[in-house]
Design a binder for these strands. Structure first.
Length: 865
RNA sequence: GCGGGCGUGGCGGAACGGUAGACGCAUCGGACUUAAAAUCCGCUGGCUUUUUAGCCGUGGGGGUUCAAAUCCCCCCGCCCGCACCA
């Protein structure tokens, strides 16, 4: 820790007392309570709510510092701001804690929330705490159960037996979005495939809406929109049925390239295709092949190294355009059951996978698309399939057409023959929401032997979690609860069983932004007029890791609710900002190789690090995301304790652009602290010398004072613009620049002092969204009886914000030779004349005449010789 | 493989196609001090005996332009997302 925080010589800014004082004042005055008021423009700022792990981390500090700057700035600009906070309180860590620490998940979660609430409050965030919610409250999740039943009645929720992703460590099912590279997103365990009956939400019904909706999200990062677009994975093509020789049934395939049908040389089905299972019943060889395919994982390495392999079923299918043409049917390891129809036709010349397969099994390779300029007779495909544009050949009625025209023609022909149709498929799968866990929202369904699945009637909602559960064995604690699941069927009254699965916690986070609009409603999840006023969220802020998880689910949930007429806005988040991570250098003990925490090391003479205990040598490693495993974690609570919230916030905002990763350094936080001290001292020394607050401007200013005032108004204009565009690091740089100018200014008369007050007031107002406590304190020291938090944002004087002179660069042949000072907007002739008179310019021209002179007003004069 | 992003001093980073390196960090020098800390002031891209100057310089190579870190083409490196998606 730096001495800055502990030294106590001379006047020193009393951070802790001051920050606590203003937090108390804001709370007492309810400064941040949001009240819907249709006569005022609203602005809804939301940061992704935290999981209550027990302590805030630096990522939270960065997230909430950014959000708070926007909330405070918009409030000062006159918007009616909603800036709430809550807890994403269901989830597995609570159950793991129950297992390890023998504490009930509810208790553990409540205590964590209490601790984190205090930590967040110490940051001085402009949050309306009266709207605080926790998703584990029955008051919250009861509405979720009701909405789920609404979805069920509308056909948007269904139960189905299917192959699911099973996380063997967490002992639960995962959604496709939660499987990263074949592993569970939380545990990193290799995911297994299991066949289970699960609840699904019909996100695929909105695939096209979700895709089209992305186009309206012009305040979302391009990157996130592209990621969602890819995840939805729309492709157009055709679906058609092959007649299977000697059998009554047909084989349906999907293709995006119906144009290449005359290049077909085989058909292939997935190892998980029903036909494969049927054939395997009579072929141990095939059964073995299928089992082998299922053993291989879906990780990147597995796929890259895995060879294309097939099993010839002996079946033949008939070509749709030629009844005399037969193709062999293989079971192939590269055909996915989850996509399209689980069956394909293979055209080796124009698909790399098909080509690899064809080469291995000596199948024909017939090019049917010839690139422009190639001789059709000579064009051949070697090891690389041709997937580019061209003209169809060897394709009968398609011959001579371009690829796109041929696709249309082949599709039309399939339709005409009644064999298939042009269609669109999506990569997106329905959202599996069943989790075999305790600490989540119970799925309000009942299983009756006679009536089947029966929804819990409205008057029996909510279905609440049992409190008395045990965590001493693996599996779902609700399922083994002795009595909870036993109930009676609402339809027939016979004994029946409750659904014991709970919702994926992403269900809770799919609608919390609406709950914040009226968090205390008991009969409904939210009041319609409150949601109509506040939604959508104007600015949402969080990490990029939710690009296709939470952000897609919440968009789906909102659209599903809109489709039921429950809300008007189809998109939950009009603006999205994804902030970068907080990183730190890593350290290892040079001898043992063990990771060391920043608190374990100290700088030795010569600048290298050594262990704080014993002085052993330390190796400094890469700058990486703060993580417990690498021990490169700095606890924000310690930092706020030593330097205060304002210094922490300032450093978070000043060192890097907010979308980029930020390296947390001791030197950086020290620098932020020094700035606070300097500013505080400067105001303290001047406060009683300045004219009283509100003194009217003097009639005249010295040139020097006018110069200062220009800097002030330019800074006001510049910082406002920077904040609008999330350029917080530039805003801070501008404010520091102005602070430096003010510190250098030596006032000589009353007008100078007036200008100085104007300048300091501007600095205080401009830093207020970033360092609200210091700003409030200085505002008060400058003699204001009002709260800065309740004051309007300053307006720049447009006349003063514009310079009346411009420093203009003079170039000769594009090389800088001099700079000249010209009146603003000086005419070309003047600029040229002065520029050409510059001795250095004359010298550089070497006596040659100017062939051309380019004058860019207030910028540059370029003399071409 | 497909898609997206990035590459600027010792470091984080600034630069509507128009004075490259704002602002900060670090280093170094100085002031204050018995001393240290803190604080304040100053230097700091590289090279050059034209030093109120010149040359070079934004990953590399070409190009467009009066003018390129910025636009275009090729290459190199790093990061992120998706991935046997028919």
């Amino acid at each position: 820790m730096s001495g800055a925080a502990t030294a106590a010589i001379g006047a020193r800014y009393a951070v802790k007392e001051t920050e606590a004082k203003w937090q108390a004042v804001w709370a007492a005055r309810n400064c941040f309570a949001a009240v819907a008021d249709p006569s005022k423009p609203k602005y809804y700022v939301l940061e992704m709510f935290p999981y209550p792990s027990g302590r805030i981390h630096m990522g939270h500090v960065r997230n909430y510092a950014i959000g708070d700057v926007i909330a405070r700035y918009k409030k000062a600009k006159g918007f009616n701001v909603l800036h709430p906070m809550g807890w994403d309180a269901f989830g597995l860590p609570a159950e793991n804690a129950a297992l390890e620490k023998k504490v009930h998940p509810a208790k553990w979660t409540r205590e964590n929330i209490a601790a984190m609430r205090e930590q967040l409050k110490s940051m001085g965030l402009s949050i309306d705490w009266s709207r605080e919610i926790a998703t584990c409250d029955v008051a919250y999740y009861r509405h979720e159960q009701k909405t789920f039943l609404d979805f069920y009645k509308a056909g948007l929720a269904y139960r189905k037996e299917s192959w699911v992703n099973w996380d063997p460590v967490d002992n639960t099912v995962l959604a496709n979005e939660q499987v990263i590279d074949g592993r569970g997103w939380r545990t990193g365990a290799l995911v297994e495939k299991r066949k289970l009956s699960q609840w699904f939400l019909k996100i695929t019904a909105f695939a096209d809406d979700l895709l089209e909706g992305l186009k309206t999200l012009d305040r979302w990062p391009e990157r996130v929109r592209i990621m969602q677009e890819n995840w939805i994975g729309k492709s157009s093509g055709a679906r058609f049925k092959f007649e299977i020789k000697g059998r009554g049934d047909k084989l349906e395939v999907f293709t995006t390239r119906p144009d290449t049908l005359f290049g077909a040389s085989f058909a292939a089905i997935s190892p998980n295709h029903p036909l494969a299972a049927e054939l395997a019943a009579n072929s141990t060889e095939l059964a073995e092949f299928i089992a082998e395919c299922n053993r291989v994982g879906t990780s990147e390495e597995a796929i890259e190294t895995q060879e294309k392999r097939g099993f010839d079923t002996g079946l033949k299918v008939v070509h749709p355009f030629d009844s005399t043409w037969e193709l062999p049917v293989y079971v192939a390891n590269f055909v996915l059951m989850e996509y399209g129809t689980g069956a394909i036709f293979g055209c080796p010349a124009h698909d790399q996978r098909d080509l690899d397969f064809a080469r291995k099994y000596a199948l024909p390779v017939t090019p049917v698309v010839i690139p422009e300029g190639e001789d059709p007779a000579a064009f051949a495909v070697g090891d690389e399939a041709y997937t580019g544009p061209g003209i169809l050949r060897n394709s009968r009625f398609l011959d001579g057409l371009e690829v796109e025209a041929a696709k249309a023609a082949a599709g039309a022909k399939l339709e005409e023959l009644g064999l298939g149709e042009r269609t669109t498929v999506y990569r997106l799968r329905d959202w599996g929401v069943s989790r075999q866990r305790y600490w989540g929202c119970p799925i309000p369904m009942i299983h009756c032997d006679d009536c089947g699945v029966v929804p819990v009637p409205d008057d029996q909602l909510p279905v609440t979690l049992p409190d008395d559960v045990t965590f001493d064995q693996p599996g779902n604690p609700i399922a083994r609860h002795p009595t909870w699941k036993h109930t009676t069927c609402p339809t027939c009254g016979k004994p029946a069983l409750r659904e014991t699965d709970t919702f994926d916690t992403f269900v809770e986070s799919s609608w919390y932004q609406m709950r914040f609009c009226s968090p205390h409603e008991t009969e409904v999840g939210f009041a319609r007029d409150a949601v109509d006023y506040w939604m959508p969220v104007d600015q949402y802020i969080g990490g990029i890791e939710h690009a296709v998880l939470h952000l897609l689910y919440a968009r789906f949930w909102t659209r599903a609710m809109a489709s039921l007429g429950k809300i008007a806005t189809p998109e939950p988040f009009a603006g999205l900002f994804t902030q970068g991570m907080v990183n730190h250098e890593t350290y290892k003990d040079a001898e043992s190789g063990a990771w060391l925490s920043p608190a374990d090391i100290v700088k030795a003479d010569g600048g290298s690090y050594v262990r704080i205990d014993g002085g052993g040598p330390v190796t400094v490693g890469r700058v990486e995301k703060m993580s417990k495993s690498k021990k490169n974690v700095v606890d924000p609570a310690n930092i706020i304790d030593a330097y205060g919230a304002d210094a922490s916030r300032l450093f978070m905002l000043s060192d890097s652009p907010p979308e980029r990763d930020l390296e947390w350094t001791e030197a950086g936080i020290d620098g932020a602290w020094r700035y606070i001290s300097r500013l505080w001292r400067a105001v303290g020394e001047l406060a009683d010398k300045l004219p009283a607050a509100g003194t009217p401007a003097p009639a005249a200013f010295s040139d020097k004072a006018t110069g200062l005032r220009r800097s002030v108004h330019k800074a006001v204009a510049g910082v406002s613009d920077d904040l609008e565009k999330f350029r917080f690091n530039k805003a801070v740089a501008r404010i520091r620049e102005l602070s430096n100018a003010l510190a250098d200014f030596k006032p000589a008369d009353d007008a100078d002092l007036w200008a100085l007050r104007e300048g300091f007031e501007a600095v205080v107002r401009l830093v207020s969204p970033m360092m609200p406590h210091l700003a409030e304190e200085l505002w008060s020291q400058l003699g204001h009886g009002t709260l800065l938090t309740e004051s309007a944002w300053p307006e720049a004087d447009a006349g003063l914000a514009r310079d009346d002179e411009a420093t203009v660069a003079v170039q000769v042949n594009g090389k800088l030779r001099a700079t000249i000072l010209l009146p603003r907007d000086a005419d070309q002739a003047t600029a040229q004349e002065i520029a050409l008179a510059e001795p250095n310019v004359v010298k550089a021209m070497e006596g040659k005449p100017a062939r051309k002179v380019i004058v860019i007003p207030n910028r540059v004069v370029n003399v071409v010789v």
